[in-house]
Write a protein that binds this DNA or RNA. Structure first.
Lengths: 131, 131, 131, 131
DNA sequence: GTGGTCTAGACCACC
DNA sequence: GTGGTCTAGACCACG
Protein backbone atom coordinates (compact mmCIF):
# COMPACT_ATOMS: atom_id res chain seq x y z
CA UNK A 1 0.00 0.00 0.00
CA UNK A 2 1.12 3.45 -0.91
CA UNK A 3 0.98 6.22 1.67
CA UNK A 4 1.18 9.79 0.31
CA UNK A 5 3.87 11.25 2.53
CA UNK A 6 6.22 13.92 1.23
CA UNK A 7 9.63 14.55 2.75
CA UNK A 8 11.19 17.97 2.55
CA UNK A 9 14.90 17.33 2.55
CA UNK A 10 15.80 20.95 3.25
CA UNK A 11 13.47 21.66 6.13
CA UNK A 12 15.08 21.96 9.54
CA UNK A 13 12.13 19.96 10.84
CA UNK A 14 13.30 16.47 11.78
CA UNK A 15 12.49 13.72 9.35
CA UNK A 16 10.57 11.62 11.81
CA UNK A 17 8.50 14.63 12.76
CA UNK A 18 7.54 15.44 9.19
CA UNK A 19 6.40 11.89 8.65
CA UNK A 20 4.52 11.73 11.93
CA UNK A 21 2.64 14.93 11.25
CA UNK A 22 1.51 13.84 7.82
CA UNK A 23 0.62 10.31 8.81
CA UNK A 24 -1.32 11.58 11.81
CA UNK A 25 -3.31 13.89 9.58
CA UNK A 26 -4.08 11.08 7.17
CA UNK A 27 -5.32 8.82 9.94
CA UNK A 28 -7.29 11.32 11.95
CA UNK A 29 -8.60 12.93 8.79
CA UNK A 30 -9.97 9.55 7.75
CA UNK A 31 -7.88 9.18 4.61
CA UNK A 32 -6.60 5.86 5.92
CA UNK A 33 -9.38 3.62 7.15
CA UNK A 34 -9.46 2.02 10.56
CA UNK A 35 -7.96 -1.45 10.53
CA UNK A 36 -5.77 -0.79 7.52
CA UNK A 37 -2.49 -2.67 7.52
CA UNK A 38 0.25 -0.12 6.99
CA UNK A 39 3.35 -0.93 4.94
CA UNK A 40 6.05 -2.77 6.85
CA UNK A 41 8.69 -0.54 8.35
CA UNK A 42 11.21 -1.81 5.80
CA UNK A 43 8.92 -1.22 2.85
CA UNK A 44 7.94 2.23 4.02
CA UNK A 45 11.56 3.13 4.66
CA UNK A 46 12.31 2.09 1.10
CA UNK A 47 9.50 4.29 -0.24
CA UNK A 48 10.63 7.29 1.78
CA UNK A 49 14.29 6.60 1.16
CA UNK A 50 15.08 6.87 4.82
CA UNK A 51 16.27 4.52 7.51
CA UNK A 52 14.14 1.70 8.86
CA UNK A 53 14.70 3.12 12.30
CA UNK A 54 13.13 6.42 11.45
CA UNK A 55 9.96 4.71 10.28
CA UNK A 56 9.98 2.52 13.32
CA UNK A 57 10.11 5.58 15.51
CA UNK A 58 7.17 7.11 13.68
CA UNK A 59 5.06 3.97 14.09
CA UNK A 60 5.99 3.72 17.73
CA UNK A 61 5.23 7.34 18.55
CA UNK A 62 1.84 7.10 16.87
CA UNK A 63 1.19 3.86 18.69
CA UNK A 64 1.89 5.64 21.97
CA UNK A 65 -0.67 8.22 20.94
CA UNK A 66 -3.15 5.42 20.40
CA UNK A 67 -3.48 5.89 16.65
CA UNK A 68 -1.74 2.67 15.65
CA UNK A 69 -1.61 -0.85 16.98
CA UNK A 70 1.25 -3.15 16.15
CA UNK A 71 1.73 -6.84 16.69
CA UNK A 72 5.12 -8.42 16.33
CA UNK A 73 5.40 -10.71 13.38
CA UNK A 74 2.15 -9.41 11.92
CA UNK A 75 2.43 -5.75 11.17
CA UNK A 76 1.13 -2.33 12.09
CA UNK A 77 -2.54 -1.42 11.89
CA UNK A 78 -4.57 1.76 12.11
CA UNK A 79 -6.65 1.58 15.25
CA UNK A 80 -10.06 2.98 15.94
CA UNK A 81 -10.19 6.74 16.06
CA UNK A 82 -13.27 8.15 17.76
CA UNK A 83 -15.22 10.64 15.65
CA UNK A 84 -14.83 13.14 18.45
CA UNK A 85 -11.07 12.81 18.31
CA UNK A 86 -11.06 13.92 14.71
CA UNK A 87 -13.08 17.04 15.38
CA UNK A 88 -11.10 17.88 18.49
CA UNK A 89 -7.85 17.46 16.64
CA UNK A 90 -8.97 19.63 13.75
CA UNK A 91 -10.17 22.38 16.00
CA UNK A 92 -7.14 22.34 18.24
CA UNK A 93 -4.69 22.31 15.39
CA UNK A 94 -6.33 25.02 13.38
CA UNK A 95 -7.16 27.25 16.30
CA UNK A 96 -3.61 27.06 17.61
CA UNK A 97 -2.20 27.95 14.20
CA UNK A 98 -4.57 30.85 13.72
CA UNK A 99 -3.88 32.24 17.16
CA UNK A 100 -0.15 32.26 16.69
CA UNK A 101 -0.64 34.03 13.38
CA UNK A 102 -2.74 36.71 15.01
CA UNK A 103 -0.13 37.05 17.76
CA UNK A 104 2.49 37.67 15.12
CA UNK A 105 0.30 40.37 13.61
CA UNK A 106 -0.19 41.98 16.98
CA UNK A 107 3.49 41.95 17.81
CA UNK A 108 4.33 44.10 14.81
CA UNK A 109 1.28 46.27 15.27
CA UNK A 110 -0.31 45.24 12.01
CA UNK A 111 -3.72 46.76 11.44
CA UNK A 112 -6.79 44.65 12.15
CA UNK A 113 -8.40 44.95 8.72
CA UNK A 114 -5.08 44.77 6.95
CA UNK A 115 -4.37 41.47 8.69
CA UNK A 116 -7.69 39.95 7.73
CA UNK A 117 -7.34 41.12 4.15
CA UNK A 118 -3.89 39.62 3.83
CA UNK A 119 -5.07 36.37 5.37
CA UNK A 120 -8.00 36.14 3.01
CA UNK A 121 -5.72 36.70 0.05
CA UNK A 122 -3.40 33.91 1.15
CA UNK A 123 -6.29 31.54 1.77
CA UNK A 124 -7.69 32.13 -1.71
CA UNK A 125 -4.34 31.56 -3.35
CA UNK A 126 -3.45 28.42 -1.41
CA UNK A 127 -6.85 26.78 -1.75
CA UNK A 128 -6.89 27.51 -5.44
CA UNK A 129 -3.50 25.93 -5.94
CA UNK A 130 -4.61 22.93 -3.94
CA UNK A 131 -7.59 22.15 -6.14
CA UNK B 1 18.99 49.38 31.81
CA UNK B 2 16.19 46.90 32.08
CA UNK B 3 15.02 45.07 28.98
CA UNK B 4 11.57 43.46 29.24
CA UNK B 5 12.36 39.98 27.96
CA UNK B 6 10.53 36.95 29.34
CA UNK B 7 11.94 33.45 29.18
CA UNK B 8 9.62 30.48 29.12
CA UNK B 9 11.57 27.67 30.74
CA UNK B 10 9.17 24.98 29.59
CA UNK B 11 8.93 25.89 25.95
CA UNK B 12 10.74 23.63 23.51
CA UNK B 13 11.87 26.80 21.73
CA UNK B 14 15.61 27.35 22.25
CA UNK B 15 16.55 30.00 24.76
CA UNK B 16 18.54 32.09 22.34
CA UNK B 17 15.64 32.11 19.92
CA UNK B 18 13.12 33.28 22.50
CA UNK B 19 15.39 36.15 23.46
CA UNK B 20 16.21 37.11 19.89
CA UNK B 21 12.60 37.25 18.84
CA UNK B 22 11.59 39.51 21.70
CA UNK B 23 14.59 41.78 21.45
CA UNK B 24 14.13 42.13 17.71
CA UNK B 25 10.51 43.15 18.18
CA UNK B 26 11.49 45.73 20.77
CA UNK B 27 14.10 47.28 18.50
CA UNK B 28 12.19 47.23 15.24
CA UNK B 29 8.98 48.24 16.97
CA UNK B 30 10.79 51.28 18.33
CA UNK B 31 10.47 50.42 22.01
CA UNK B 32 14.24 50.72 22.34
CA UNK B 33 15.55 53.90 20.77
CA UNK B 34 18.35 54.06 18.23
CA UNK B 35 21.71 54.53 19.88
CA UNK B 36 20.67 53.00 23.20
CA UNK B 37 23.46 51.21 25.04
CA UNK B 38 22.28 47.72 25.83
CA UNK B 39 23.25 45.97 29.08
CA UNK B 40 26.56 44.15 29.04
CA UNK B 41 26.48 40.49 28.17
CA UNK B 42 27.17 39.51 31.77
CA UNK B 43 24.58 41.85 33.20
CA UNK B 44 21.90 40.72 30.75
CA UNK B 45 22.74 37.09 31.38
CA UNK B 46 22.36 37.76 35.08
CA UNK B 47 18.94 39.35 34.56
CA UNK B 48 17.74 36.48 32.42
CA UNK B 49 19.37 33.85 34.60
CA UNK B 50 20.89 32.24 31.58
CA UNK B 51 24.41 31.59 30.29
CA UNK B 52 26.54 34.48 28.97
CA UNK B 53 27.15 32.34 25.94
CA UNK B 54 23.47 32.51 25.12
CA UNK B 55 23.34 36.31 25.35
CA UNK B 56 26.53 36.51 23.36
CA UNK B 57 24.86 34.59 20.60
CA UNK B 58 21.80 36.81 20.65
CA UNK B 59 23.87 40.01 20.35
CA UNK B 60 25.95 38.43 17.61
CA UNK B 61 22.96 37.29 15.58
CA UNK B 62 21.23 40.65 15.82
CA UNK B 63 24.47 42.37 14.92
CA UNK B 64 24.67 40.20 11.82
CA UNK B 65 21.14 41.31 10.97
CA UNK B 66 22.30 44.90 11.29
CA UNK B 67 20.12 45.71 14.28
CA UNK B 68 22.99 46.07 16.74
CA UNK B 69 26.51 47.46 16.59
CA UNK B 70 29.25 46.40 19.00
CA UNK B 71 32.23 48.60 19.84
CA UNK B 72 35.17 46.91 21.51
CA UNK B 73 35.46 47.89 25.13
CA UNK B 74 32.43 50.15 25.00
CA UNK B 75 29.41 47.95 24.62
CA UNK B 76 26.57 47.07 22.30
CA UNK B 77 24.32 49.75 20.80
CA UNK B 78 21.07 49.74 18.89
CA UNK B 79 21.70 50.75 15.28
CA UNK B 80 19.57 52.92 13.08
CA UNK B 81 16.61 51.01 11.75
CA UNK B 82 15.40 52.31 8.43
CA UNK B 83 11.65 52.60 8.03
CA UNK B 84 12.00 50.20 5.13
CA UNK B 85 13.57 47.60 7.37
CA UNK B 86 10.67 47.82 9.73
CA UNK B 87 8.17 47.41 6.93
CA UNK B 88 10.06 44.52 5.42
CA UNK B 89 10.28 42.82 8.79
CA UNK B 90 6.61 43.29 9.48
CA UNK B 91 5.57 41.92 6.15
CA UNK B 92 7.90 38.95 6.26
CA UNK B 93 6.95 38.02 9.78
CA UNK B 94 3.25 38.35 9.29
CA UNK B 95 3.10 36.73 5.91
CA UNK B 96 5.07 33.74 7.14
CA UNK B 97 2.78 33.33 10.15
CA UNK B 98 -0.36 33.60 8.05
CA UNK B 99 0.89 31.11 5.51
CA UNK B 100 1.64 28.48 8.08
CA UNK B 101 -1.81 29.01 9.57
CA UNK B 102 -3.42 28.45 6.19
CA UNK B 103 -1.29 25.34 5.68
CA UNK B 104 -2.60 23.99 8.95
CA UNK B 105 -6.15 24.59 7.78
CA UNK B 106 -5.48 22.86 4.50
CA UNK B 107 -3.93 19.84 6.16
CA UNK B 108 -7.08 19.04 8.08
CA UNK B 109 -9.33 19.90 5.16
CA UNK B 110 -10.91 22.86 6.88
CA UNK B 111 -13.34 24.75 4.67
CA UNK B 112 -12.18 28.00 3.05
CA UNK B 113 -14.91 30.25 4.43
CA UNK B 114 -14.92 28.49 7.77
CA UNK B 115 -11.22 29.20 8.11
CA UNK B 116 -11.58 32.89 7.33
CA UNK B 117 -14.51 33.23 9.69
CA UNK B 118 -12.62 31.62 12.53
CA UNK B 119 -9.60 33.78 11.84
CA UNK B 120 -11.67 36.94 11.85
CA UNK B 121 -13.22 35.94 15.14
CA UNK B 122 -9.82 35.39 16.73
CA UNK B 123 -8.50 38.69 15.36
CA UNK B 124 -11.45 40.60 16.80
CA UNK B 125 -11.08 38.98 20.19
CA UNK B 126 -7.32 39.42 20.46
CA UNK B 127 -7.26 43.02 19.24
CA UNK B 128 -10.08 43.91 21.59
CA UNK B 129 -8.25 42.44 24.55
CA UNK B 130 -5.11 44.26 23.52
CA UNK B 131 -6.66 47.72 23.52
CA UNK C 1 -13.21 -31.35 19.82
CA UNK C 2 -13.55 -27.93 21.24
CA UNK C 3 -10.76 -26.59 23.47
CA UNK C 4 -11.69 -23.59 25.63
CA UNK C 5 -8.79 -21.27 24.84
CA UNK C 6 -9.26 -17.51 24.73
CA UNK C 7 -6.97 -15.20 22.79
CA UNK C 8 -6.55 -11.62 23.91
CA UNK C 9 -5.75 -9.72 20.76
CA UNK C 10 -4.61 -6.61 22.58
CA UNK C 11 -2.27 -8.20 25.08
CA UNK C 12 1.42 -7.69 24.41
CA UNK C 13 1.86 -11.35 25.34
CA UNK C 14 2.75 -13.38 22.26
CA UNK C 15 -0.02 -15.46 20.79
CA UNK C 16 1.78 -18.77 21.12
CA UNK C 17 2.45 -18.06 24.78
CA UNK C 18 -1.15 -17.27 25.60
CA UNK C 19 -2.26 -20.50 24.01
CA UNK C 20 0.47 -22.59 25.61
CA UNK C 21 -0.28 -21.33 29.08
CA UNK C 22 -3.96 -22.08 28.83
CA UNK C 23 -3.56 -25.45 27.19
CA UNK C 24 -0.95 -26.47 29.75
CA UNK C 25 -3.29 -25.57 32.58
CA UNK C 26 -6.10 -27.57 31.03
CA UNK C 27 -3.92 -30.64 30.65
CA UNK C 28 -2.13 -30.55 33.98
CA UNK C 29 -5.28 -29.52 35.78
CA UNK C 30 -6.97 -32.59 34.39
CA UNK C 31 -9.61 -30.81 32.32
CA UNK C 32 -8.42 -32.69 29.25
CA UNK C 33 -8.08 -36.40 29.95
CA UNK C 34 -4.98 -38.42 29.23
CA UNK C 35 -5.09 -39.96 25.78
CA UNK C 36 -7.44 -37.37 24.33
CA UNK C 37 -6.91 -36.64 20.65
CA UNK C 38 -6.46 -32.91 20.20
CA UNK C 39 -7.80 -31.06 17.16
CA UNK C 40 -5.56 -31.02 14.12
CA UNK C 41 -3.27 -28.06 13.74
CA UNK C 42 -5.38 -26.64 10.93
CA UNK C 43 -8.64 -27.11 12.76
CA UNK C 44 -7.34 -25.54 15.94
CA UNK C 45 -5.84 -22.65 14.00
CA UNK C 46 -9.22 -22.14 12.37
CA UNK C 47 -10.96 -22.11 15.76
CA UNK C 48 -8.49 -19.61 17.18
CA UNK C 49 -8.31 -17.56 14.00
CA UNK C 50 -4.56 -17.63 14.08
CA UNK C 51 -1.78 -19.01 11.93
CA UNK C 52 -1.17 -22.76 11.72
CA UNK C 53 2.45 -21.97 12.41
CA UNK C 54 1.48 -20.66 15.81
CA UNK C 55 -0.48 -23.78 16.74
CA UNK C 56 2.33 -25.92 15.40
CA UNK C 57 4.68 -24.20 17.78
CA UNK C 58 2.35 -24.71 20.72
CA UNK C 59 2.00 -28.45 20.09
CA UNK C 60 5.72 -28.73 19.59
CA UNK C 61 6.60 -26.91 22.80
CA UNK C 62 4.17 -28.92 24.87
CA UNK C 63 5.45 -32.11 23.29
CA UNK C 64 8.96 -31.11 24.33
CA UNK C 65 7.66 -30.66 27.86
CA UNK C 66 6.26 -34.18 27.70
CA UNK C 67 2.63 -33.12 27.92
CA UNK C 68 1.74 -34.14 24.36
CA UNK C 69 2.70 -36.94 22.05
CA UNK C 70 2.43 -36.71 18.28
CA UNK C 71 2.01 -39.74 16.02
CA UNK C 72 2.68 -39.23 12.36
CA UNK C 73 -0.50 -39.33 10.33
CA UNK C 74 -2.67 -39.86 13.37
CA UNK C 75 -2.63 -36.70 15.38
CA UNK C 76 -1.61 -35.23 18.69
CA UNK C 77 -2.57 -36.84 21.98
CA UNK C 78 -2.43 -35.85 25.61
CA UNK C 79 0.23 -37.88 27.41
CA UNK C 80 0.09 -39.31 30.87
CA UNK C 81 0.74 -36.66 33.47
CA UNK C 82 2.25 -38.04 36.65
CA UNK C 83 0.84 -36.75 39.91
CA UNK C 84 4.33 -35.53 40.70
CA UNK C 85 4.42 -33.42 37.54
CA UNK C 86 1.24 -31.75 38.50
CA UNK C 87 2.51 -30.97 41.95
CA UNK C 88 5.81 -29.69 40.65
CA UNK C 89 4.05 -27.52 38.11
CA UNK C 90 1.69 -26.09 40.69
CA UNK C 91 4.46 -25.26 43.08
CA UNK C 92 6.72 -23.73 40.49
CA UNK C 93 3.98 -21.65 38.96
CA UNK C 94 2.58 -20.39 42.20
CA UNK C 95 5.92 -19.73 43.86
CA UNK C 96 7.16 -17.77 40.87
CA UNK C 97 4.01 -15.66 40.80
CA UNK C 98 4.14 -14.98 44.53
CA UNK C 99 7.79 -14.01 44.40
CA UNK C 100 7.29 -11.49 41.66
CA UNK C 101 4.39 -10.01 43.60
CA UNK C 102 6.58 -9.61 46.66
CA UNK C 103 9.29 -8.05 44.53
CA UNK C 104 6.79 -5.51 43.31
CA UNK C 105 5.87 -4.69 46.88
CA UNK C 106 9.52 -4.30 47.82
CA UNK C 107 10.24 -2.04 44.89
CA UNK C 108 7.74 0.56 46.04
CA UNK C 109 8.65 0.14 49.69
CA UNK C 110 5.31 -1.26 50.65
CA UNK C 111 5.12 -2.28 54.29
CA UNK C 112 5.44 -5.98 55.17
CA UNK C 113 2.18 -6.32 57.05
CA UNK C 114 0.34 -4.02 54.70
CA UNK C 115 1.36 -6.25 51.80
CA UNK C 116 0.17 -9.41 53.47
CA UNK C 117 -3.11 -7.80 54.48
CA UNK C 118 -3.77 -6.62 50.96
CA UNK C 119 -2.89 -10.02 49.56
CA UNK C 120 -5.22 -11.77 51.97
CA UNK C 121 -8.02 -9.43 51.03
CA UNK C 122 -7.54 -10.12 47.34
CA UNK C 123 -7.39 -13.87 47.92
CA UNK C 124 -10.64 -13.84 49.87
CA UNK C 125 -12.41 -11.82 47.22
CA UNK C 126 -11.19 -13.83 44.26
CA UNK C 127 -11.81 -17.22 45.82
CA UNK C 128 -15.25 -16.17 46.91
CA UNK C 129 -16.16 -15.01 43.43
CA UNK C 130 -14.82 -18.25 42.01
CA UNK C 131 -17.05 -20.47 44.06
CA UNK D 1 25.70 11.56 40.36
CA UNK D 2 25.31 7.87 40.89
CA UNK D 3 21.98 6.21 40.16
CA UNK D 4 21.50 2.72 41.66
CA UNK D 5 20.27 0.81 38.65
CA UNK D 6 21.08 -2.86 38.22
CA UNK D 7 21.09 -4.57 34.86
CA UNK D 8 20.37 -8.25 34.60
CA UNK D 9 22.26 -9.38 31.54
CA UNK D 10 20.44 -12.72 31.32
CA UNK D 11 16.89 -11.54 31.65
CA UNK D 12 14.77 -11.71 28.51
CA UNK D 13 13.40 -8.32 29.56
CA UNK D 14 14.75 -5.63 27.25
CA UNK D 15 17.56 -3.51 28.60
CA UNK D 16 15.76 -0.24 28.19
CA UNK D 17 12.77 -1.64 30.00
CA UNK D 18 14.77 -2.80 32.99
CA UNK D 19 16.31 0.63 33.32
CA UNK D 20 13.02 2.43 32.86
CA UNK D 21 11.28 0.38 35.50
CA UNK D 22 13.97 0.96 38.10
CA UNK D 23 14.40 4.64 37.36
CA UNK D 24 10.65 5.16 37.46
CA UNK D 25 10.50 3.54 40.86
CA UNK D 26 13.31 5.72 42.17
CA UNK D 27 11.64 8.89 40.98
CA UNK D 28 8.09 8.14 41.99
CA UNK D 29 9.26 6.57 45.22
CA UNK D 30 11.02 9.83 46.05
CA UNK D 31 14.54 8.41 46.15
CA UNK D 32 15.59 10.99 43.58
CA UNK D 33 14.46 14.47 44.49
CA UNK D 34 12.47 16.74 42.21
CA UNK D 35 14.72 19.00 40.20
CA UNK D 36 17.72 16.69 40.37
CA UNK D 37 19.98 16.82 37.34
CA UNK D 38 20.40 13.27 36.12
CA UNK D 39 23.69 12.05 34.68
CA UNK D 40 24.20 12.88 31.03
CA UNK D 41 23.18 10.16 28.63
CA UNK D 42 26.82 9.50 27.82
CA UNK D 43 27.87 9.27 31.44
CA UNK D 44 24.95 7.05 32.40
CA UNK D 45 25.60 4.81 29.42
CA UNK D 46 29.18 4.47 30.61
CA UNK D 47 28.02 3.51 34.11
CA UNK D 48 25.57 0.95 32.82
CA UNK D 49 27.93 -0.29 30.15
CA UNK D 50 25.28 0.06 27.51
CA UNK D 51 24.77 2.20 24.43
CA UNK D 52 24.07 5.91 24.64
CA UNK D 53 20.99 5.30 22.57
CA UNK D 54 19.50 2.95 25.09
CA UNK D 55 19.82 5.56 27.83
CA UNK D 56 18.43 8.21 25.54
CA UNK D 57 15.40 6.07 24.94
CA UNK D 58 14.88 5.63 28.65
CA UNK D 59 15.07 9.36 29.29
CA UNK D 60 12.74 10.08 26.43
CA UNK D 61 10.14 7.53 27.43
CA UNK D 62 10.10 8.85 30.98
CA UNK D 63 9.86 12.37 29.65
CA UNK D 64 6.80 11.34 27.66
CA UNK D 65 5.34 10.03 30.89
CA UNK D 66 5.97 13.42 32.44
CA UNK D 67 8.53 12.22 34.96
CA UNK D 68 11.52 13.94 33.39
CA UNK D 69 12.13 17.23 31.67
CA UNK D 70 15.07 17.69 29.34
CA UNK D 71 16.53 20.76 27.76
CA UNK D 72 18.98 20.50 24.92
CA UNK D 73 22.46 21.61 25.86
CA UNK D 74 21.61 21.58 29.54
CA UNK D 75 20.65 18.14 30.64
CA UNK D 76 17.82 16.03 31.97
CA UNK D 77 15.99 16.85 35.19
CA UNK D 78 13.49 15.13 37.41
CA UNK D 79 10.23 17.00 37.20
CA UNK D 80 7.60 17.51 39.83
CA UNK D 81 5.70 14.39 40.79
CA UNK D 82 2.43 14.99 42.57
CA UNK D 83 2.14 13.20 45.90
CA UNK D 84 -1.04 11.61 44.60
CA UNK D 85 0.83 10.15 41.66
CA UNK D 86 3.13 8.30 43.99
CA UNK D 87 0.32 6.74 45.96
CA UNK D 88 -1.62 5.88 42.85
CA UNK D 89 1.42 4.31 41.26
CA UNK D 90 2.21 2.25 44.36
CA UNK D 91 -1.30 1.00 44.70
CA UNK D 92 -1.72 0.19 41.03
CA UNK D 93 1.59 -1.60 40.76
CA UNK D 94 1.23 -3.64 43.89
CA UNK D 95 -2.41 -4.47 43.42
CA UNK D 96 -1.81 -5.63 39.86
CA UNK D 97 1.07 -7.83 40.96
CA UNK D 98 -0.88 -9.35 43.81
CA UNK D 99 -3.88 -10.04 41.64
CA UNK D 100 -1.92 -11.86 39.02
CA UNK D 101 -0.32 -13.92 41.77
CA UNK D 102 -3.72 -14.87 43.13
CA UNK D 103 -4.89 -15.71 39.61
CA UNK D 104 -1.95 -18.05 39.25
CA UNK D 105 -2.92 -19.73 42.51
CA UNK D 106 -6.51 -20.10 41.37
CA UNK D 107 -5.54 -21.54 38.01
CA UNK D 108 -3.79 -24.48 39.62
CA UNK D 109 -6.46 -24.85 42.27
CA UNK D 110 -4.14 -24.02 45.11
CA UNK D 111 -5.87 -23.89 48.51
CA UNK D 112 -6.80 -20.52 49.93
CA UNK D 113 -4.96 -20.88 53.23
CA UNK D 114 -2.05 -22.66 51.63
CA UNK D 115 -1.61 -19.74 49.24
CA UNK D 116 -1.62 -17.15 52.00
CA UNK D 117 0.81 -19.16 54.09
CA UNK D 118 3.22 -19.53 51.21
CA UNK D 119 2.96 -15.84 50.40
CA UNK D 120 3.63 -14.86 53.99
CA UNK D 121 6.67 -17.10 54.08
CA UNK D 122 8.07 -15.50 50.94
CA UNK D 123 7.40 -12.01 52.22
CA UNK D 124 9.24 -12.72 55.45
CA UNK D 125 12.24 -14.14 53.67
CA UNK D 126 12.51 -11.39 51.06
CA UNK D 127 12.03 -8.51 53.46
CA UNK D 128 14.57 -10.02 55.84
CA UNK D 129 17.14 -10.33 53.09
CA UNK D 130 16.45 -6.78 52.05
CA UNK D 131 17.20 -5.24 55.43
C1' DG E 1 30.10 20.10 27.71
C1' DT E 2 24.87 18.90 26.89
C1' DG E 3 20.82 16.58 24.14
C1' DG E 4 18.61 15.55 19.14
C1' DT E 5 18.63 13.24 14.84
C1' DC E 6 19.87 9.85 11.56
C1' DT E 7 22.46 6.12 9.55
C1' DA E 8 23.81 1.15 8.62
C1' DG E 9 23.71 -3.14 10.18
C1' DA E 10 23.13 -6.97 13.30
C1' DC E 11 20.48 -10.43 15.85
C1' DC E 12 16.27 -12.00 18.00
C1' DA E 13 11.23 -13.20 18.55
C1' DC E 14 6.94 -13.92 16.30
C1' DC E 15 3.57 -15.46 12.68
C1' DG F 1 7.87 -12.40 5.92
C1' DT F 2 6.81 -9.21 10.16
C1' DG F 3 8.27 -6.06 14.32
C1' DG F 4 11.73 -5.44 18.63
C1' DT F 5 16.11 -4.50 20.51
C1' DC F 6 20.74 -2.97 20.55
C1' DT F 7 25.12 -1.41 18.76
C1' DA F 8 28.64 1.97 16.99
C1' DG F 9 29.37 6.11 15.11
C1' DA F 10 28.41 10.39 12.84
C1' DC F 11 26.82 15.15 12.63
C1' DC F 12 24.06 19.03 14.29
C1' DA F 13 21.98 22.39 17.68
C1' DC F 14 22.22 24.33 22.23
C1' DG F 15 24.41 26.60 26.48
Amino acid sequence: MWIPVQINENSPEPLYHQIETQLRSLIIGGSIAEGTLLPSIREFAGDLKCSVITVRRVYQDLENEGLLRTRQGTGTFVSHVGDGAMETYKQETVRKALESAVDAGLSVQCGEEELIALFTEIVRSKYKKNN
